[in-house]
């Protein structure tokens, strides 16, 4: 867990370092992120929607329509199952409250394209690819089993940017995305999720 926290901080400060170097055309976006598990085996592990998530990105604008940069998302998936008897791999019968948790941290290179310049509402599409850091933790009662994984990550998203002021650089952002997160461990095949984000975009200058 300590390694995971350190990694989170390193990513954040890495983003900051990038931001200060090229501040003029950089925009920082911070979003609240809701994720719905989509893969069947992922839903078997945790069926509940993750309401504990966020997304941050720093994108460099090449012109008024095209921008690219780094995006980091985070979601905590959690589901607690009432006590029941499970068959252990050794043939034993195990009566336990089962808590399944999983945290995903996709870190991706991201590109976005806005369809309209200087419009009041600016629709855009985006694609991204990178690495997904996964913390898998399953609890039998109070006894945890935990393991980290790093896998590939891909995303596509569509959304709108609504500047707070006409021709303003900061604004409101609303988007939806589909994360394709390959995974084939712990009985789970793929951690794909459908996501909805809402947040703000702030120019870094």
């Amino acid at each position: 867990m300590k390694t995971f926290k350190k990694l989170c901080f390193l990513i954040c400060f890495g983003l900051f370092a990038t931001a200060t170097a090229e501040a003029q055309r950089l925009k920082f976006a911070l979003n609240y992120n809701v994720a719905v598990p989509m893969s069947e085996s992922f839903k078997d592990y945790v069926s509940k929607t993750s309401l504990r998530g966020m997304q941050g990105s720093i994108l460099y604008s090449f012109n008024e329509q095209i921008r690219a940069g780094l995006q980091v998302s985070y979601n905590d998936f959690y589901e607690k199952f009432p006590r029941q008897v499970y068959k252990g791999s050794d043939g034993s019968d195990i009566s336990t409250v089962l808590t399944n948790t999983l945290q995903t941290l996709p870190i991706m290179v991201k590109g976005e394209y806005s369809f309209m310049k200087e419009a009041r509402v600016q629709p855009y599409v985006g694609v991204g690819a990178g690495v997904n850091i996964v913390n898998f933790e399953q609890y039998l009662g109070e006894f945890p089993y935990a393991k980290y994984y790093s896998k590939a990550a891909f995303t596509v998203d569509v959304g709108i940017l609504v500047p707070f002021r006409k021709e303003g650089n900061s604004g409101f952002r609303l988007s939806t995305s589909y994360n394709y997160l390959p995974f084939n461990d712990e009985g789970i095949k793929n951690l794909n999720s459908w996501n909805v984000q809402a947040g703000v975009v702030i120019p870094l200058k």
């Binding site: 989170c8 900051f16 920082f28 985070y74 034993s92 948790t101 039998l140 009662g141």
Partner: peptide, 28 residues
């Protein structure tokens, strides 16, 4: 950005705090 880092750390449901003593026990 620092706030983002703290949010990531805080944005996690604490498993043990959501278990009462009965839930914590395992019988094999």
């Amino acid at each position: 950005l620092v706030g983002f880092g703290f949010l990531i750390q805080g944005c996690r449901k604490d498993v043990l705090k959501n278990l009462d003593d009965d839930d914590a026990r395992v019988y094999i």
